[in-house]
């Protein structure tokens, strides 16, 4: 090795530069010294990523189609069934339009809280187990996007903008372990904090929900909405987050921990919306999907005593959820809720 001395010197120098970069970036905190560097790189790479996404878009679509092929037949069957059901409902609704109109007005009043959003397309993604779960979207400062804006999908909360470039922005996802958001249980004032689990979430669609008051019963199947931050930055209130799936019973702890399945499918993020203007008043639970799904068969898998204990506790407090839609009244409710349209 003729140049091993020089090689070692250069290696040492480069390692030192990397360490200095780490130190500067880590110590500088939020107002980064290296902000302009990141901004420039974001502008350059963002443009190329948009072009790359446009070129590879058909490939992504084709692979997605192939991946969905086995379930497509089942989906077609389900849709046929749903179609028949909906046709029945439409005819039933036509019969008593007057009552339906009244219900519609009521629901319209409840659903007044609207978010103004800018739609965006996900162009790139990074997932490193443990530290980051981020996506790049194709709107930026030119479209009115600023850092710390809420990002949502058609089903629920996605995350928040952490950096807005000129024509693209970086979004930290809710599954990122570094991200936490204020959350509220549906139909009450019990507050908590939602934390991403990252890799520990198993498949990435589980998050941790810590209820600040450990005496409040949670109950499997209760839904979580965002609580909203001060001046609606970074989170606007009322966005659906997920459904409680599992509860950790740890007596003596200050907070109560539950695990919730997110409404948004984070493994197939495509079209998202960035909230550029918060609703004038908190929409409370009106943005949640209309009807809670019927009890999952998954619950039978864990016949633990804490599950039954949970249920009896809830009954004791008189806090049981409304039963799944079996009577006509609930069906109407659902139909009217679907007719409302434009949930977000």
């Amino acid at each position: 090795m003729r140049d091993t001395r020089r090689a070692r010197l250069t290696l040492g120098l480069l390692l030192a530069v990397a360490l200095i970069l780490i130190t500067v970036d880590n110590r500088a905190g939020s107002d980064r010294v290296l902000g302009p560097v990141r901004g420039f790189a974001g502008a350059v790479f963002g443009k190329v990523e948009r072009v790359g996404a446009a070129v590879t878009g058909p490939i992504t679509g084709f692979v997605g189609m192939l991946r969905d092929a086995p379930s497509a037949r089942r989906v077609i069957g389900d849709l046929r069934k749903e179609n028949a059901r909906l046709r029945d409902e439409v005819s039933a609704q036509r019969l008593d339009r007057a009552r339906s109109d009244k219900l519609d007005r009521m629901l319209g009043l409840a659903g007044l809280g609207r978010y103004r959003i800018v739609p965006a397309q996900v162009v790139a993604r990074r997932t490193v187990a443990g530290f980051e779960d981020t996506v790049e979207i194709d709107v930026g400062a030119a479209d009115g996007i600023r850092a710390d804006m809420t990002v949502l999908s058609d089903q629920g909360l996605v995350g928040r903008v952490i950096q807005a470039g000129p024509a693209s922005s970086t979004v930290a996802l809710l599954t990122d372990p570094a991200l936490s958001a204020g959350a509220r249980l549906e139909g009450g004032n019990e507050l908590g904090v939602v934390n991403g689990l990252g890799e520990a979430g198993g498949g990435g669609n589980l998050i941790k929900f810590r209820l600040l008051d450990s005496t409040v019963p949670i109950g499997v199947g209760r839904r979580i909405v965002s609580f909203g931050s001060q001046r609606s930055l970074p989170y606007v209130p009322g966005v659906p987050i997920g459904v409680v799936e599992r509860i950790d019973n740890t007596p003596g702890e200050v907070t109560r921990t539950a695990y919730a399945r997110l409404f948004t499918d984070f493994s197939a993020l495509d079209v998202v919306g960035v909230v550029v203007a918060a609703p004038k008043r908190d929409p409370r639970d009106s943005v949640l999907p209309p009807v809670p799904p019927p009890p999952k068969p998954r619950d039978e898998r864990r016949p633990g005593e804490h599950r039954t204990g949970q249920r009896s506790l809830e009954e004791g407090f008189g806090l049981r959820r409304p039963a799944p839609p079996r009577d006509e009244r609930a069906r109407e409710d659902m139909a009217a809720g679907e007719g409302r349209g434009g949930r977000n």
Binding site: A18, L19, I20, L21, I22, D25, N26, L34, V37, R38, A41, G42, F45, G46, E49, A124, R125, R126, V128, F131, E132, T134, V135, E136, I162, Q163, G165, S168, T170, V171, A172, D176, A178
Partner: peptide, 9 residues
């Protein structure tokens, strides 16, 4: 590279 949220370096 843009969707990055970790420490530079």
């Amino acid at each position: 590279l843009p969707p990055a949220n970790h420490t530079l370096g």
